[in-house]
Design a binder for these strands. Structure first.
Length: 425
RNA sequence: GGAGAAAUGGCAGAGCGGUUUAAUGCGGCGGUCUUGAAAACCGUUGUACUGAAAGGUACCGGGGGUUCGAAUCCCUCUUUCUCCGCCA
């Protein structure tokens, strides 16, 4: 949720930011509506506070009079207080209505893009931040996409997943299951080495948590929901891990807080079927290691650089061709101020697949989370950042496709210590 | 799932209808003393909104109610503890 103070102190910056997200002049009117509701709320509060202060004072007076045995005088004041109370009801209501409207409006406004975010409408306008400058792998004739390879080597089985659960729930088996576990361990070990504390969080969260990181109300339809217990299956470890610091005032010397977590991720991905989502390209359940940071506003972009370097290192070690995109205003997530996407080259499909998204949310998320720190005697919102390091399903897809040889699928050196073998055949 | 008890500031813990602007202790921070530290002593010590400021308002697990007045009484939900049941 956008910080109201930021919007008030720099309306022009907010307008320019929203224009980068392709807001029309008409849509920009939301800003004036926000300012109007804010004023209505403040006015109602000032009146209410005065009313309550007077009631409180009179109630004390009644106590004194009753003790002194002046019952009739006390009765007279009671009437006045009753009258004040009637008015208080209306004021309270006015304040509540204005607050709710204000919040609703604020929630409808996305984060203000960082100044480096390029203008643009769609994925095609994203800026290539770091291109792959070496040759892309050329596969031998007869090379297959990963879903064919999966059948050939019995690595994972989507049809079996349909039997057990439904479409989009792969069953990994044999060397495929081992490869999955190896990648998870490799990613976690790398993150630990880079100073991230390992967290093993719950896979279900309550409404409060989903709201605080911005999944609610924005992405409600994307999450699996357990109605009976009012819980959501997490779409990413970001949700439980970031929420560890919900309502926490962090000691400034603990910055940056770095956490990593492996979880399975659950996404409904309603309505997306077809050739472009075959195999592991898009599934309802997948494994992901996430890195999360809570940082001082002055150094959050430095930390973002560090996260990009970390993810780049993973790709290098896995010997996978990749590129980094700086997302344009039109393609960036609702809550992000700056996002870099990592895409891996899928040789058999001959296309780039998104495997990581690294973002700085500045105070957009922390405003909901209320992660703060003391700056002198002021309390300020911290910055939150997160990124995938990495998402498994598509990495597996790329690994299988790019490393296929007539003899079998070659395993990158760095993973061999985890798998215990160097080829899937 | 059943029965009982409880939830108060960073922690411990008093208060159980009217100067509570929440006692006291511990911890934290600042200071005195000291070569330094400890001890002792003094001061200070939440969050949010509002206001130019002084100040005001709200918050004693969450929500609702009774009352002129609620941390205190009532209802409800949640959580924790004890016992029973079930169980990887």
């Amino acid at each position: 949720m956008l910080e109201l103070g930021l919007l008030k102190s720099n309306k022009e910056r907010t307008i320019q930011g929203l224009k980068k997200r392709n807001y029309s002049d008409e849509a920009l009117l939301v800003i004036d509506r926000i300012l109007a509701e804010d004023e209505a709320r403040r006015n109602a509060q000032v009146e209410l506070d005065n009313n309550l202060a007077e009631s409180k004072r009179l109630a004390g007076e009644i106590g004194g009079l009753l003790k002194a045995g002046k019952a009739s005088e006390a009765e007279a004041i009671k009437a006045t207080v009753a009258n004040l109370k009637e008015q208080a009801k209306d004021l309270e209501n006015a304040m509540k209505v204005a607050s709710e409207r204000l919040e609703e409006l604020l929630l409808s406004v996305p984060n203000i893009p960082h100044h480096s975010v390029p203008a643009g409408k769609s994925a095609e306008d994203n800026e290539v931040y770091k291109a792959w400058d070496k040759p892309l792998p050329v596969l031998a004739p007869g090379a297959q996409p990963h879903w064919e390879l999966a059948k050939k080597y019995n690595i994972f089985d989507l049809d079996l997943g349909v039997k057990l659960t439904g479409a989009g729930f792969p069953v990994f088996r044999g060397k495929g299951a081992r490869l999955e576990r190896s990648l998870i361990n490799f990613f976690l070990d790398e993150a630990s080495r880079a100073g991230y504390e390992e967290i093993a969080p719950p896979l279900m969260v309550n409404k409060e948590s989903a709201r605080a990181t911005g999944q609610l109300p924005d992405k409600e339809g994307q999450m699996y929901y357990v109605e009976r217990d009012d819980l959501y299956l997490i779409p990413t470890a970001e949700v439980p891990v970031t929420n560890i610091y919900r309502d926490v005032i962090v000691d400034e010397k603990d910055f940056p807080i770095k956490m990593t977590g492996y979880t399975q991720c659950f996404r409904r991905e309603a309505g997306s079927y077809g050739a472009h989502v075959r195999g592991l390209n898009r599934v309802h359940q997948f494994d992901k290691v996430e890195i999360v940071q809570i940082a001082h506003p002055d150094s959050s972009y430095e930390q973002l650089e560090g996260m990009i370097a970390h993810v780049s290192g993973l790709m290098d070690k896995l010997e996978l061709p990749y590129r980094i995109l700086r997302l344009c205003g039109g393609d960036m997530g609702f809550t992000s101020a700056l996002t870099f996407d990592f895409e891996v080259w899928s040789a058999a499909q001959e296309r780039w697949l998104e495997v990581s998204s690294v973002s700085n949310f500045e105070t957009y998320q922390s405003n909901r989370l209320k992660v703060r720190f003391k700056d002198g005697n002021k309390t300020r919102l911290a910055h939150t950042l997160n990124g995938s390091a990495l998402a498994l399903a598509r990495i597996v897809a790329a690994l299988l496709e790019n490393n296929q040889t007539p003899e079998g699928i070659r395993i990158p050196k760095v993973l061999q210590a985890y798998t215990g073998w160097d080829i899937i055949d």
